[in-house]
Design a protein around this nucleic acid. Structure first.
Lengths: 162, 162
DNA sequence: GGATGTTATATAACGTGTTATAGATTAAAT
DNA sequence: ATTTAATCTATAACACGTTATATAACATCC
């Protein structure tokens, strides 16, 4: 049995580690979705949820809402279009923007998911995290906020720009 | 300004969120490495650290040590070979196994990194996480252990296999 | 009102993880 | 001993993120 260096090295490998856990969680989430017989990828859900919450959004707004870059949003939106869950049309006032909205099929999926799938996933994750010492979600938020204030490179002691 | 749905949805999107933060941290880490003028990728470091800690390891052991799948380990090892940081030769007792070891150049890089780079990165991450309520590293460990015991699908209430 | 710059989306090329599968070597079984 | 099964690494195909850049539409300035 080999030691898990990422775990052993602590803060040094926290990036790798968060990613690794995130990937694992998403894979597990996918399994729950598949078991429910839904033809959708876990990573596509936030897009649908964003539109459901805020109404039709442009590609750029979707990218912001789900926290990825614009080309990624373009691609995932293309997949959702292909699957028939969303519709896309130029914004009336600005032909550059494409407004992405839910189709009836997409709204059905969201409604069903909100009722059946999402609570199940959230409950499973809560169960997993329930026994933790601290409020993990707030800590993640604090990390995100901290990174927004000053990236790691600006926190490494070599460049004391006092 | 559009709301961050991944953040808003909490436990439901924790997978995406952890991944997102991990990617951001790794990108920031890469910047620190680049500023130090080292020609290496952040994701390659755990491989070197694993060999440094445990001595020569096989591809499979490396995969285990850094927590990815074997094909990923094969690829990254190939890159490190190309860069001249590691050497690879068949295990004497079993021709299927390939023992990966540090070259002099690789050991130099590790020694320098241990002294200069890694403490800098670890300090920056610790600074980022310092003000948190709870011990984030232990919480991550608890999540990993929890997933090992029962994946999400086995924690979702639909399949009560009592 | 035409040149110039800016903004929004699309596309290309790449990085790094995954799963599925092939090839080579070792172990086991008849 | 030869066949069969198991193990280890390599390779192929794909998923999904990134950066860099092209194209189209809008805004501005003379």
């Amino acid at each position: 049995m080999v030691e898990d260096v990422v775990r052993t090295l602590g803060f040094l490998c926290m990036g790798s580690r968060l990613r690794r856990i995130g990937e694992r969680l998403q894979a597990d989430t996918q399994q729950v979705i598949d078991e429910a017989g839904l033809g959708i990828q876990a990573g596509q859900y936030p897009f649908l949820a964003a539109i459901d919450r805020a109404g039709p959004l442009t590609i750029g707004e979707l990218a912001q809402a789900v926290g990825i870059t614009q080309p990624g949003a373009t691609r995932t939106t293309g997949q959702l279009l292909e699957l028939g869950y969303v519709d896309m049309q130029p914004a009336p006032d600005d032909q550059r923007r494409r407004l992405v909205s839910l189709t009836a099929k997409g709204q059905d999926l969201v409604d069903y998911s909100k009722k059946v799938i999402w609570p199940r996933i959230a409950a499973a994750v809560a169960d997993l995290c329930g026994d933790l010492d601290g409020p993990i979600l707030e800590q993640l938020a604090a990390i995100e906020d901290g990174l927004a204030v000053a990236p790691l490179a600006r926190r490494s002691p070599v460049k004391e720009e006092t």
